[in-house]
Design a protein around this nucleic acid. Structure first.
Length: 522
RNA sequence: GGCGACAUAGCCAAGUGGUAAGGCAGCGGUCUGCAAAACCGCGAUUCCCCGGUUCAAAUCCGGGUGUCGCCUCCA
């Protein structure tokens, strides 16, 4: 089945056919770096990340460009409030953006251009628009002449007359028409400015995206993402500029994500009801926040609440537990397993490859698990093919988790001998969970890499930590002692060990094959 | 005023013509010394309301109600 994308331009789902076969050019509207970004902004950054990952999974070579807007009214205002330079503001929040982005598991774009590095290109494009008679200069400002572009309003599905009725003209502007928008602003005293044919000034809001997308992706590229609120005027104007300058429609598919509401109201900086990602990350790991963001379809509004995040944390934990349950049953972990020298995932991969999916007869446990794996993958792909339906894709992962847990419980745990075919199938199930979980970015290989036979571990203690002994080994020692006292039915002692470890964040779970542990908390 | 989105169990949520995925919470059961984890079972005769089309509609059409958004800086 073909991949389908909802296109704002046509207001319907369309089959995805890239401009160049096998390649995809994407442009994502990035941050204006004047503050920490909030959970609503985060959605606009996670959505293109998921689209990109899925397109790559589908075999496309993707180039993702995301701008950083580092010159704008809000930045200038923020710098003035604080008595610092705009550069100070920009560098502080650019770094904050990168940190928070990383915490959410959003991969860096291939190209992350900054507006101020492209002023020359903007001046060039504006000059070109003036030369073509599509733009005009007034007192050092330059405006785009909307009346010259007969498709204006198409993206936002507005007709010109209605737009005119709602348009506002700021004091001091001298536009010929209320709809005309600014390409270049004459500098006011004390503002950062660049020299231009129209005098010192700075670029308007929209022009940077036209210039940078054209430069890095060409006159026509495949997918442009952003929040729904950018449809008008930002993207409408972007289309007008780019089309005017390049003579061709700039974007094939426009994908706009819905808002995040809080208490049923739109979350917005101007309303003051926003929650920054930085703040939320103090309570929940980034992967939980990410799970929350993709638990609904990207075009639908989501309501933000702590209850919702708690539910997501539980649900995600279930997926992760299925993986660690299986690894425990397989006896695979760093420094453990049949070949302790191999890293965890190499062991899993080797084991998975040792059998052949589909070979086992469908009456066998291994055969049933392989069938469940195939079904989960099919459901995952079908959902993602349908306009990146991540909610359906996550449901597929949960079905896979159930299959893994059932298999581990019934067919592996407590069995004297587990056939190689079954071990191999379990390894394939784990690898599939990891692979698909990584496509939507909620199960991080780096995190799961830390899984080991005894449970999950913190990253730091690999070879013994400061004491030179190793937390893992100490925990294992305690668990060995506990196994002895349990065998002697000294349950007060064994429970104390479990409770005290629990206070340290080490959760101990007894199974038929012995105790396993994992770290909880962050 | 113009444009648009959404309305599915206690909560979150998928599902665009064929008889309601998945998660969280709850209840019952299995397993366990206990706990945890896990699995199984139970839960919407029904998808905001009213009409209509159809052998068949949560899904299509008409009307209504409610919530939210864009039209102005805003993901």
């Amino acid at each position: 089945m073909a991949l389908r994308i909802y296109n704002t331009l046509s207001r319907r789902k369309e089959d995805f056919v890239p401009v160049k076969q096998g390649k995809v050019g994407m442009y994502s509207c990035g941050p204006t770096v004047y503050d920490y970004f909030h959970i609503g902004n985060a959605r606009a950054f996670v959505v293109p990340d998921v689209i990109r990952r899925y397109l790559q999974y589908r075999g496309y070579e993707v180039t993702l460009v995301q701008n950083i807007t580092d010159i704008d009214d809000k930045i200038i205002r923020r710098a003035a409030e604080r008595g610092v330079t705009t550069n100070d503001v920009v560098s502080q929040y650019t770094q904050a953006f990168i940190d928070d982005r990383d915490a959410l598991g959003i991969k860096a774009p291939d190209i992350q251009p900054r507006a101020t590095d492209h002023v020359a290109g903007m001046i060039e494009m504006i000059s070109g628009l003036i030369d073509k008679g599509l733009a005009y200069e007034r007192n050092g400002d330059v405006y785009y002449d909307v009346s010259q572009f007969d498709e204006y309003g198409r993206l936002s599905n507005q007709n010109i007359d209605d737009l005119v009725a709602g348009a506002r003209v700021d004091v001091g502007e001298s536009k010929d028409d209320a709809l005309d928008f600014t390409l270049w602003k004459a500098a006011k005293p004390g503002e950062p400015s660049w020299q231009s044919p129209w005098g010192p000034g700075r670029p308007g809001w929209h022009i940077e995206c036209s210039v940078m997308s054209t430069k890095y992706l060409g006159a026509t590229f495949d997918i442009h993402t952003g929040g729904v609120d950018l449809v008008f005027p930002h993207h409408e104007n972007e289309v007008a500029q780019s089309h005017g300058a390049n003579g061709t429609p700039p974007v094939k598919y426009w994908a706009h994500n819905g808002f995040i509401n809080i208490d049923g109201q739109r979350m917005g900086k101007s309303l003051g009801n926003f929650r920054t990602v930085r703040d939320i990350l103090k309570q929940y790991p980034g992967k939980v926040v990410r799970y929350f963001l993709i638990s609904n379809h990207y075009r639908k509004p989501i309501n933000f609440s702590d209850e919702e995040l708690r539910m997501c944390a539980k649900a995600l934990g279930r997926l992760e537990d299925a993986v660690s349950n299986a690894l425990f049953a397989l006896g695979i972990g760093a420094g453990a397993g049949p070949d302790p020298e191999l890293a965890v995932w190499d062991q899993v991969r080797r084991l998975a490859a040792s059998g052949e999916a589909g070979r086992a007869d469908s009456e066998s446990a291994a055969g049933r698990l392989d069938a469940a794996i195939a079904a989960a993958r099919a459901q995952f792909e079908e959902s993602m093919d349908d306009d990146f339906n991540t909610a359906g894709a996550i449901a597929a992962l949960h079905e896979l988790a159930t299959a893994i847990n059932t298999f581990v419980n019934q067919d592996m745990q407590g069995q004297r001998e587990v056939a190689e075919a079954e071990r191999s199938a379990a390894a394939r199930a784990v690898l599939t969970m990891m692979e698909l979980g990584d496509v939507v970015g909620i199960i991080e290989p780096g995190f799961m890499e830390a899984q080991r036979a005894g449970g999950a571990r913190a990253e730091q203690d690999g070879e013994g930590g400061e004491s030179g002994i190793g937390t893992d080994r100490l925990i294992q020692l305690l668990l060995d002692v506990r196994a002895e006292v349990r065998a002697a039915k000294l349950y007060q002692v064994s429970d104390m060990i479990r409770d005290r470890l629990g206070e340290l964040g080490v959760v101990v779970e007894d199974t038929r094959d012995g105790a396993r542990w994992k770290l909880v908390g962050k």
